[in-house]
Amino acid sequence: MASQGTKRSYEQMETDGERQNATEIRASVGKMIDGIGRFYIQMCTELKLSDYEGRLIQNSLTIERMVLSAFDERRNKYLEEHPSAGKDPKKTGGPIYKRVDRKWMRELVLYDKEEIRRIWRQANNGDDATAGLTHMMIWHSNLNDTTYQRTRALVRTGMDPRMCSLMQGSTLPRRSGAAGAAVKGVGTMVMELIRMIKRGINDRNFWRGENGRKTRSAYERMCNILKGKFQTAAQRAMMDQVRESRNPGNAEIEDLIFLARSALILRGSVAHKSCLPACVYGPAVASGYDFEKEGYSLVGIDPFKLLQNSQVYSLIRPNENPAHKSQLVWMACNSAAFEDLRVLSFIRGTKVSPRGKLSTRGVQIASNENMDAMESSTLELRSRYWAIRTRSGGNTNQQRASAGQISVQPAFSVQRNLPFDKPTIMAAFTGNTEGRTSDMRAEIIRMMEGAKPEEMSFQGRGVFELSDERAANPIVPSFDMSNEGSYFFGDNAEEYDN
């Protein structure tokens, strides 16, 4: 993207840094990872977990959730003011799984939030270390993106479920800051804005008074975040219109849905970061690795190297396929839920299948599930090659597409044709070009129609051997075009429920 120079890199967003050079960025990201790792080690000690239990991804998720809940100030305040039966607002906890007599047992633990905050700050040299908290939120978000298709949420806001490739980060909490905003897809931002506008339509006082002023500035800020994701002048001009509207209503909703559809071809720039579970960072720190000293990046080879040398386990339900569970977590670790499966298959070195073909449910185990038949197995999170994460949407291309997802959002900077089903997408653009945004709409449609099938995206960008740390010898991959490109292809993934 041309304006790259004016933006802070995501590592800076990730670490609240002012302008830093590459070495400083690597050190501050490393410091953040160190903090998460030290916190995780301490929690495993508190909970008396064995090494194996500490490497269980379900335990990692519970521990991450506990610290996120302990620092969720708004919710904590709300819980104190609106006490609900049987919930102690000062405590947080969740299921911890232990191996007892050759069987997995679930144990519900409860801790004072104050105590968890103390352990977290102690692991982070006394700081609140917001960057580390956001990092864990993005890992949870990436896992949700890989596990669930947001059909219901899309339909509720009037969008087409086939636009799911635009929904990265749709389950990120509001408090995820600049680093969170960077990884949100165009569809996620559109959905947040539509929800806001709908509230304004239904509630006369939404934009009024002292609160209304705050609401208005939040609305304009979200519009600017979305505008910054678009790469064409016409899309940005249309966002200006939406932002400046005196009284946002149905016309703005129409414009936003139009823009979301246009992003299936004229893709937005959305950041991709490899955020790993805390149970990967903990053992690495415990083994003596100093992330701050060595430096770390979320968008280069580092996460690949770390996963190459990590042992992570997962509980497996009786009829689940461990290899499929591994694929789910591998995609989440690489922030690749909406990437082209052919690119992923090449990088991973084994075939990556669409969601609907995987015999696996989510990673988390519900409290009512029976533990008797639970097994555990090693997650295979290694890769054959590594590639640089991208934040450009890439230019655009036609490809055989599917009944489910009709476009992709690249996660890796790797040369390819970008699949999208042009006739299906263009069919949504018939007729409606009147109104105050008509010239911009016409211009956007013209650009979409001009998108050429034979153009290559990320020209000359390749993948790298894991021994090639400096990215000196790019390998331009070859793809098996007979395979499906979309992950949520004609899909039956479970729906995400809060």
Rank of each mutant, 00 (worst) to 15 (best):
V280F: 07
G177S: 06
H272N: 07
I201S: 06
S141D: 12
L341D: 14
E434L: 12
A336D: 11
G460K: 14
I201K: 04
R243C: 01
R150D: 06
R384Q: 09
T6L: 00
Q42A: 09
K227I: 11
S457W: 01
K7P: 00
Q58T: 07
T188L: 04
Q149W: 07
H140M: 06
I406L: 11
G54W: 05
A427W: 00
A153G: 11
M426I: 15
T390E: 01
R38Q: 12
K229M: 11
S335M: 01
S377E: 05
E484T: 15
A22S: 14
I475K: 05
K422P: 00
I96G: 04
M374P: 02
A442I: 15
S314V: 14
M32G: 06
I201W: 13
A218K: 03
E449G: 07
R102G: 14
D72I: 03
V280L: 10
V312C: 15
S269K: 07
L56V: 13
N142C: 09
Q241H: 05
V463N: 07
G126N: 13
V190I: 14
Q235G: 05
L358N: 08
L154T: 01
M163Y: 03
N368S: 12
N368H: 07
E244K: 11
A129P: 02
I253K: 07
T45I: 08
M239K: 06
T147V: 12
N321K: 15
R400W: 09
S377F: 15
N125K: 06
I365M: 13
N247A: 13
D372C: 08
V109F: 08
N417R: 15
L61D: 13
D240E: 15
R74Y: 02
A178S: 10
R382V: 03
D88P: 00
R221A: 02
G362Y: 05
S335E: 04
V109H: 03
A218S: 15
I138C: 03
N417G: 10
D16F: 03
R355P: 08
Q231A: 13
A472G: 08
T215P: 02
S262N: 08
L61G: 06
C279K: 10
S69N: 12
S383F: 01
E454F: 10
K90L: 09
Q42T: 04
A411P: 01
N124S: 13
R150V: 01
E455D: 08
G158S: 14
L266H: 04
E320W: 08
A337R: 11
E294T: 14
D240H: 13
G300L: 03
A332V: 03
D160I: 08
N144K: 05
W207P: 00
W207Y: 13
G35Q: 02
V155Y: 04
M191A: 01
G86S: 11
F258G: 07
I41T: 14
G30D: 01
A251V: 14
S170E: 03
S60F: 04
E18D: 15
A179L: 05
R162D: 03
E380N: 07
G490I: 01
A233C: 10
K351V: 10
F464S: 04
N124W: 12
E73Q: 13
G394Q: 11
R267K: 15
P89R: 02
D439T: 02
T23H: 15
G177C: 06
N483P: 00
